[in-house]
């Protein structure tokens, strides 16, 4: 009860620091989701639609990548972005940009696999029809992604949720710098390490509430189109 109370208090007080942390979490994870999607959605759709060389290899690799622990992704990005690493001269280690990169890499395989799964049944339905109409590859991608959009968005959401919830990668590449790269999860880790278990849990509840809110919102939006999705 006290924890719930504390969580509620945190939200109601809209403490500037907390707002900043929540905002940064959303900004980083949303951007990462958008960037990952930009590549993962067309590629995932292409994997569902066409046979091409190394397709199976790509599928196996991307599925395996889903099992990659965030810390490992974080570590790889860290080594790449470190001044001692190949991309060091950009100087983006310990910035939100580095966190966005790490999370994009982390959720890319998720969005890819879920997009592929979302497109597969629609492609199975549509293939002959689109063939009969001589639909161009680009048009075909657009049509299938659009008509599978609610399932695709669900995949995006799963990716976004994973990004928002992960701590291992962002703490390594972001450095958990107060007011700059500190997000909800790293704050929770930090408060836990300070023994502020109740504050940490309250923050966890705030995080959960945000996740529920966003999911409800998207679910609500997608329910408008659900009726078109019924497959025959």
């Amino acid at each position: 009860m006290t924890i719930l109370g504390q969580a509620a208090e945190l939200v109601v007080s809209a403490d500037a620091e907390l707002v900043g942390i929540v905002g940064l979490s959303l900004r980083v994870s949303l951007t990462a989701t958008l960037i990952a999607s930009l590549f993962a959605i067309p590629l995932g759709a292409a994997l569902a639609i066409w046979q091409f060389p190394f397709r199976q290899v790509l599928i196996v690799i991307s599925t395996s990548l889903m099992a990659l622990p965030p810390v490992v992704v974080g570590l790889i990005i860290y080594l790449l972005l470190s001044r001692a690493g190949p991309l060091g001269h950009y100087g983006i280690l310990f910035t939100p940009t580095a966190m966005i990169i790490a999370q994009s890499v982390l959720i890319f395989p998720i969005v890819l696999a879920l997009t592929r799964e979302a497109i597969l049944p629609v492609n199975r339905d549509y293939k002959n029809l689109l063939d009969a109409w001589d639909v161009s590859p680009v048009q075909r991608l657009k049509t299938l992604i659009w008509d599978a959009r609610f399932a695709v968005v669900t995949g995006l959401l799963a990716g976004f949720g994973r990004a928002l919830a992960e701590v291992g990668a962002v703490i390594i590449v972001g450095g958990n710098i107060a007011g700059f790269t500190r997000v909800m999860t790293t704050t929770i880790a930090l408060e836990t390490s300070k023994g502020n278990l109740e504050l940490a849990l309250a923050l966890g509840i705030v995080l959960l509430s945000i996740a529920i809110l966003i999911n409800a919102l998207i679910h609500w939006i997608s329910s408008f189109g659900q009726k078109y999705q019924v497959s025959r």
């Binding site: 002959n128 639909v135 078109y228």
Partner: peptide, 27 residues
């Protein structure tokens, strides 16, 4: 595209009836 083809089992696009008719028109 100069011919119309109707499959043995009709394939419907996951859209409204109107949008189904609009699709080939646009193509």
């Amino acid at each position: 595209l100069t011919r119309g083809f109707v499959f043995q089992t009709p394939i419907v696009l996951r859209r409204s009836v109107r949008a189904n008719l609009a699709y080939p028109l646009k193509l």
